[in-house]
Design a protein around this nucleic acid. Sequence first.
DNA 1: GCTGACTCTTGATGCAGGATAAGAAAATTA
DNA 2: TAATTTTCTTATCCTGCATCAAGAGTCAGC
Lengths: 193, 193
Amino acid sequence: MFSEIDRHISRCTPVSDEELQIFNSRLKHMSVKKKTMLLRQGEVCRFEAYIVKGCVKKYYIDQNGDQVILQFAVEDWWISDIGSFSEQRPSNLFIETLEDTELLTVDFESKEKLFREIPKLERAFRIMVQRAYSVLESRFYATVSHSAESRYQEFLKRYPSLPQRVPQQQIASYLGITPESLSRIKTQMLKKK
Amino acid sequence: MFSEIDRHISRCTPVSDEELQIFNSRLKHMSVKKKTMLLRQGEVCRFEAYIVKGCVKKYYIDQNGDQVILQFAVEDWWISDIGSFSEQRPSNLFIETLEDTELLTVDFESKEKLFREIPKLERAFRIMVQRAYSVLESRFYATVSHSAESRYQEFLKRYPSLPQRVPQQQIASYLGITPESLSRIKTQMLKKK
DNA sequence: GCTGACTCTTGATGCAGGATAAGAAAATTA
DNA sequence: TAATTTTCTTATCCTGCATCAAGAGTCAGC
């Protein structure tokens, strides 16, 4: 019963076993195939999803029609368009699975209801967003002021499993460079060693 | 009594007058001179500050010793290092006033205490962080995929008062370019018109 | 196991914005 | 008001990454 997601919540703030049980009972378990679209531009994001198993990307389409990947999410991460979900307004983003994926999702009404019943869960989620914010902030300044090569090395350190799971062009998109540039960066890094 | 900050909170979730009064009573009012350091790298961030009047920047020092500005904050904004404040761990950032500034601040203990007394305030702050997160996310993808010129135009739209209040080199730093480039961009934009 | 579709590499060329430098203009301070 | 500092502009040259193009490797479906 007390699964990874419970540990994930408890890492934010202590929550009793009964409360966790209520929380768990409101989650919807989903198994979806690779390349499933969980959210499309123009739709309102109806879920916050915790990834039990698998891999997901969040991206938007830029003015040239190219994907720009904002986030990868793997096991023990949450994925959602927070802006669209929490204001229940149309999203600019796409969320799509990269592997067969198992998810636990909450919808907007359940989440609101849960927070009213169990204020400690609201605390846990507040703390989770704060942490996500500070991670995004760090990533933001890494992107602004580091070279493509050092961003790639940072990426490898932080997400060691992803290069085996995700096509390289998508990693390039995440890093904000072209696949060609990433390829060259890799050969340069090999030469240095 | 019911000031801008109360309206700011109420825009997130309804909070009763008495609750707002308690909230207000826990805030500390500060008036500080231009060029005051509110937070230095290595210190734990002891405050979340709401700006009543004035202007503040948040930045870090990169490997070359240059300032990289992550955020400006003016009237009716909050400023803090959320990561450092909420985990009470040392910050990598500096926060410094750009004008004589009036602030309302909460410290960590007061905020925790407030949330336990008034769960609705925890809700309000959760919603505030969510909004901040989604703003940062938009800014992040604007930075990754737009040219320096369009980022500057975006900046002008969003923060029309800042060019009059803040030296241009600092705006350049915020945009992730050199002051020279911003100067060139401005002359090019004039030519086009 | 062949075929077509992705995916990765490598090369040639171009361009946005960086680095450096030096002078003009504006803001502070005396 | 003059002196000093800070900020902004302009010019030249340079670099990191993009773009375009072509070939090689890898994977998926028939």
